[in-house]
Design a protein around this nucleic acid. Sequence first.
DNA 1: ATACGATTCAAACAGTCGTCTGAACCAGCC
DNA 2: GGCTGGTTCAGACGACTGTTTGAATCGTAT
Lengths: 223, 223
Amino acid sequence: MSTPDTKNRIISAAETLFSQHGFAGTSLRNVTSEAGVNLAAIHYHFGTKDALLRAVFTRRIEPVNQRRLEMLDAAEAAAGDRAPELEAVLEAFLSPIIDLKRDIEGEGIVWSRFIGRIYSEPTEVVENLMREQFDEILQRFLHALERCLPDLGEAEIVERLQFTIGAMSHALVDLHQRLMPDYPSATGADLLQHLVTFTAAAFRAPSAYACQDRHPERRASAS
Amino acid sequence: MSTPDTKNRIISAAETLFSQHGFAGTSLRNVTSEAGVNLAAIHYHFGTKDALLRAVFTRRIEPVNQRRLEMLDAAEAAAGDRAPELEAVLEAFLSPIIDLKRDIEGEGIVWSRFIGRIYSEPTEVVENLMREQFDEILQRFLHALERCLPDLGEAEIVERLQFTIGAMSHALVDLHQRLMPDYPSATGADLLQHLVTFTAAAFRAPSAYACQDRHPERRASAS
DNA sequence: ATACGATTCAAACAGTCGTCTGAACCAGCC
DNA sequence: GGCTGGTTCAGACGACTGTTTGAATCGTAT
């Protein structure tokens, strides 16, 4: 029970500061003074600034992704042999990460800002982290969505899932609350419900590849 | 004709580097060596790093917002007394900024990454920039969307517009291409069409405030 | 009590940061 | 010619960066 306190205090402080000022905009000295620990403690526990980012990221994302898979399994099991319900699949993807916003009281806002920001940092470290953490998730959810939406091509599902991720991460950053304080943003369960409604309707839109003048492509409708 | 070359070379180099490494992750020395100018030239022409960011941002966003308003005017004029077409309103909002991706050949990708990144930087400078540049735009488009979607409350339209902005900016960053190179992302006109299809269907979803068990709120339907 | 591994500490390393200075340069005008 | 205002230059300012060191400290098992 010697280290974990220091180690977690560092991670939490880094999470706070990264979410406020970004990775490059946060110095290790900021982190240590926020955490109330010595500067060398970071090097001792993590070795490098990149490794600290990795620790901050994985601490939160791993349970999120685990829960995502659980919920997806449940949705697929509930559907039996038929395709799972679209709303259930989207909720399995969105709910665990949005829940963090309320589950970890106080830290929730911090974390959601952090993850939203991560999604738009093209740093090499972040890229590798995303690849490691999301490859399996994406494959599983793509497969489920293909079953839900047999009229859509695979490429189009990928694209719409990207739009969904964009809407989600932007909602997590919650920039809009700072720009338009008149319209308070929904949180927790409300935000989740609104996002699912929004994206489910969007996914069900006819194929944009053949929107106006052609029939929807038939591809994969017989597979 | 003495300065503009240096000044624009600085802005372009800064745009490139900001989009690649972020604002905090880019040093002024990186900018000057990329632009092939002296370090003090930045101080001479812009005064400060924040002011440089401001110049980079406004150079591109002002014509975009101008075009947005033009297209919105056209959509409203085409509809006469009736509410403008939802797709036309969304296209007016999305098209000008997506067009940049192909209009400025080569620089397009750079700029779109930059703007996508900006949307998730909670820096104070960025916040003020956004407020300055987007307040009028948002008010105009909110008003138009309220006319298109009388069954939705104002707060809900604001929220869905935020989801739309999220999907747009994430598509501009185009992180997904780096994570999933197997599925090449659409560009230009295709991306625009897909986004409009996606978001139009999403906006038309019944109110999430009363999705399953209540009737949609009536608010603003008579105003 | 003593020794040991784990942890924390103050201090410094070589670079880089944004900003600023004062001299050099270069046009065009007297 | 000389002069002026706008522009560029090399160089430096102090502050801050990520990383590293070696000694000091801690709890624990011997």
